[in-house]
Simulated assay, not measured.
Amino acid sequence: MNDFSDKKLDYKQYVVDSKLRYFKPHATKIEKSFAEEISFSLSQNSKFINPKFFYDSKGSSLFESICLLPEYYPTRTELGILKNLESDLLPFLDEQTKLVELGSGASVKTRVLIDIFTKLQTKTEYFPIDISEILTESSEQLLKDYGTLHITGIIDTYEGGLEFLKNYDEKKNLIIFLGSSFGNFTPTNGEAFLKNIFSTMKSGDLFLIGLDLVKEKNILESAYDDSADITAQFNLNVLSRINNELDADFDLNNFSHYSIYNEIDQRIEMNLKSLVSQSVIISKSNLLLNLEKNELIHTEYSHKYQVNQIKKILCDAGFEIKKMWLDDKKYFSLTLVSKN
């Protein structure tokens, strides 16, 4: 273990081997515990569960299954765009550009970009940023498949990790935020997120963001309420997680997956619907939860965008748009922007 410090940052470095290391802040702000967050969110008049809690081991596995469903177009559509952008993207990269990813997941789409980088570079540096230490496992598999890849994980918030990289070296970064995760933000929070990203980028850095586009209501609703009920299992699994980790007594048979597309706000609204009037004890949150029949617990928004809206929100955050890619059906977009 070694220390990396400067005037602003104080991180500890953990070296796994010559090609894999990761950094963690010495002093990390105390995040609210799962129990505290659930106690707060389920005590509101409009009850909700933060979608970040979907992703325990079972939830992550179910989401990988969702990505393979015929109704769920975002993953395969974005992957298709990525596979066709090499010639357009290469002129923006050089031998020194680092690949930085906000939330790497299973790294399927990341590999397409690593393929592009390794054609250009004799040594490719990849920096996944995630608050979870899960990135170590996926990193080890990537290193087996790419001989010239070097990985530096940063276990921190997105903003904290990017602030760290801003002071790490003078090399240019291509920061990627793939999938449609940005759509989970409310418009206000999304605007704040983009401005935070902009403020932590160096001049000349690039940012590639995936955004889902507005389309027919039936296509959207089918994508989030599939015929095999995998999305329903994924949604309900968060209650199983609360049962297991917070000693609660949710009866999953008393809930159903309820997802609709709100055309006015251009967003999928995913909820859990209480099928009966019921009371649930969540012991570790010190909460007695009373639910009326048909009462909703909100679990996720997934906002969709028009092309002109994408351009506006990115420009409003200070970015300069370099290139935008759409698939043939105009279902999904990838936009490359810079800070100049």
Rank of each mutant, 00 (worst) to 15 (best):
I66T: 10
P74W: 04
I38S: 08
Q141K: 15
L93G: 04
S39N: 11
T97D: 09
L113K: 04
I151K: 06
T75Y: 15
I49S: 04
F53D: 07
L93K: 09
Q121Y: 10
T148V: 11
G161L: 13
L82P: 07
F127Q: 01
I154E: 05
G105E: 03
L113F: 05
L82H: 08
I81V: 02
N50K: 08
I154H: 01
S39A: 13
T77N: 02
I66M: 07
P51N: 11
T77Q: 00
E78R: 03
T157A: 07
A106C: 14
S43N: 15
L62F: 02
L42G: 04
F117H: 02
N45T: 15
L89E: 09
L42W: 04
D94E: 11
P91E: 00
Y55S: 06
F92I: 03
L90Y: 05
S104I: 15
E133C: 12
E86N: 05
F53H: 14
Y146D: 07
S107R: 11
G147N: 15
Q96G: 11
E125A: 12
L135C: 10
L149D: 11
I38L: 09
L69Y: 00
Y146R: 03
L90I: 14
I66A: 06
S107W: 07
D156N: 07
N167R: 13
I131T: 12
T97M: 09
L149T: 13
L68R: 08
S87P: 04
I151P: 06
L120T: 03
F63R: 06
I131H: 06
N84R: 12
K58Q: 12
E125P: 02
L68V: 04
T136P: 02
G147P: 13
S104P: 14
C67D: 05
K58P: 03
N84S: 11
D94F: 06
K47Y: 10
P74M: 12
D88P: 01
T152W: 00
I134K: 10
S104H: 04
R76V: 09
T110Q: 01
S60V: 07
D94Y: 09
S65H: 14
P74T: 00
L90G: 02
L93V: 02
D88S: 11
D88G: 03
C67G: 04
E125N: 02
L113A: 03
V100P: 09
E140L: 15
F40Q: 12
D145K: 13
D156P: 01
T77W: 01
P128K: 00
P128A: 01
S61A: 08
F164M: 00
V100H: 00
T77Y: 00
T118N: 13
T157I: 13
H150W: 12
Y126R: 05
S41G: 08
L68C: 05
S139M: 13
E125H: 14
N167D: 13
H150L: 14
Q141I: 15
E86A: 12
C67N: 08
P91S: 02
H150S: 15
T124G: 04
Y126H: 02
I81N: 01
I66P: 00
R111W: 02
E137L: 13
F164H: 00
L90S: 08
F92V: 02
T110C: 03
L113H: 06
T157H: 07
L143N: 13
T77F: 05
T152V: 09
L68E: 13
E125C: 12
I155R: 11
G103R: 00
E78C: 06
E159V: 06
